[in-house]
Structure formats: C-alpha cells, structure tokens
C-alpha cells in the first residue's frame, strides 16, 4: 500500500504548540434525548480542563463532538482558530465543511479512549507508527524513531513488539497515549482513560498524563472520575449536568467550595465510596 498523502493533506509534525478550543451555542441530541444544550465554552491554549459530572450528563459527548466521532446539530466549534464543522465562504459566511476540511482541522486533535481501541493485529510500535507514516507522510525510519521515543516516554520501550493481547490494561492505555501523541496534536482529549483499569494499574497511566501536562505542549481536556487527580492536574474544573455547565472554576473552588447544590450533591455521592 503506498501512502495516500497529498501535499495539502500533509501536516507538519513539528511542534505546532497548544491550541484553543471554542464552543459556541453547540447543540447535540440523540433522538429526543438532548445531550448538549447551547454549550458555550472556551478552552485556552495549553489549558488543562477537567470535566466532571454524573453519567449521562453529556461530558463524554463534548469530547466526542470535538473529535468528530459524533457530529453536532447546531452551533460552531473552533480549534486553533479554525472552524471544525464549517468553512468560511468568500462572502464571510459559514457553510458546512467538506470532509477534506474536517480532516485538515482534525489532524490537530488527538484522543485517548476509555477502552484503548488499540489495533489488535498490530504490535505496539506499529500502532504508534501507523498515523505518522500513513497520514503525515513521515518516513518509516523517522516514525520508528519517534515511536520508540514515545514508547520509552510511557515506559514501554521493551514492549514495542508486543501485540495488545500480550499487554495488561494499563500498558495498553499507555500505548494508546503514545499512539495519540505520535501525531503531535495541539489538543488532547482523554475520555475516562483510567475507568476500565484495575485500581493498581491506574497510577502508571496518571503518571504519563502528569508528564504530558508538565510539558505543556498541548491543550488537555479530560473526563475523569479520579477527583484527586483532577484537583492536582486541572487549571479549571467544569461541573456538567444535563447538557449544561453547572459550575466552572479552579479546583479549589469547585471541589472545596462548590457554589451550586448540584455540584455539592454530586461530590457528596462521589466521596461516599
């Protein structure tokens, strides 16, 4: 298979730096169930935003529409100043984006999933190398070097040739993080990345997330139930319920001195177990 990379699709893998994400009046419904309602949200470049809230509150959907796994019903999303679902016409108005445009903007975004979603028929290093080689036109040698560097960074260099089936849950998730980092995204989305792990494996994954946060090369949006970790890593915490932001602020405020009843009852329920 030759690479199907045209000149315009090719995105530079050099440091792009963190990017902002702006949601404007975003609506999303599944049938009659409204999941996001008139959502306005600004995430600044390099900011680390943790989204908390009860299940079914729409917090995962924010990440999924940002990754274009689900398409929004109304409103706009901008990533790094570029519209994700829209293109600007010469007259200055917005029209629905072509697949090509979406692909271009989407190349700035990376996502790590709750259930890893590694490619089971490829080894760890092949998982990490695939997108750089096929999407970004990186040479195999370069991609391999980058891939080994990333696997070393997540502590799995010696597992490079192992398939996902030979790895533990925590190791799989770290490979998945390395795979997402390999495209050097300006925005990283983490969707409950520790929820499917055995408790004793959570620490390794959180350590990797801390490292990424420290480097500060990317904007991070995280959905998590690890309140201690949220407090430690977040610049800002969003409490989400029924498709709306109930409360937003630094961890010290939202977690320790919540202003809203809904936040208090949610934190109470989380603290109980």
């Amino acid at each position: 298979m030759s690479t199907n990379v045209t000149e315009t699709d090719r995105t530079d893998l050099s440091d792009k730096g963190a990017a902002s994400v702006r949601f404007r009046a975003v609506d999303k419904a599944f049938g009659s169930l409204t999941v996001l309602e008139n959502l306005h949200l600004d995430v600044e470049p390099g900011e680390r935003v943790v989204i908390i809230g009860p299940s079914g509150s729409g917090k995962t959907t924010i990440l999924r529409v940002t990754m274009t796994l689900e398409h929004i019903d109304a409103g706009t999303i901008q990533v790094g100043g570029q519209h994700l679902y829209h293109e600007e016409t010469s007259a200055g108005s917005l029209k629905a984006a072509s697949e090509r445009h979406i692909r271009k903007v989407r190349s700035n975004i990376g996502m790590v999933f709750q259930h890893f979603n590694l490619f089971p028929h490829m080894s760890a290093i092949e998982n990490v190398m695939l997108a750089p080689v096929k999407v970004h036109g990186t040479s195999r040698e370069e991609a391999q070097h980058l891939g080994m560097e990333l696997l070393a960074k997540v502590g799995l260099a010696e597992h490079a040739n192992h398939t996902p089936g030979q790895l533990s849950g925590g190791q799989k998730q770290r490979v998945a993080i390395a795979r997402a980092l390999a495209t050097q995204p300006s925005v990283m989305l983490f969707d409950e990345v520790t929820s499917a792990l055995d408790p004793e494996l959570v620490g390794d994954v959180l350590k990797v997330l801390r490292d990424i946060a420290e480097e500060g090369k990317t904007t991070m949006m995280l959905v998590t139930h690890e309140m201690g970790f949220a407090r430690e890593i977040a610049d800002r915490i969003l409490m989400f319920d029924k498709g709306r932001v109930v409360e937003s602020g630094p961890p010290s405020q939202v977690l320790d001195d919540p202003q809203e009843d809904r936040t208090r009852s949610f934190l109470g329920a989380v603290a109980e177990h």
Partner: peptide, 27 residues
C-alpha cells in the same frame, strides 16, 4: 469489527484507503 476500531481510525485521522486496508479488512 468493533466500533472502537472505527473511532480510533477517525481519531488518528486515517484516510479511507488506510482505514480499510490496514484496520478494517485485516480484522
């Protein structure tokens, strides 16, 4: 082929040819 494989292909921005020949058909 599990839904997560399709979603990972989107998240990695794979083009349709790569998605089909490297991810979907091999599985």
């Amino acid at each position: 082929v599990p839904k997560g494989q399709w979603e990972a292909s989107i998240a990695l921005n794979l083009d349709p040819a790569t998605k089909w020949t490297r991810i979907i058909i091999p599985q």
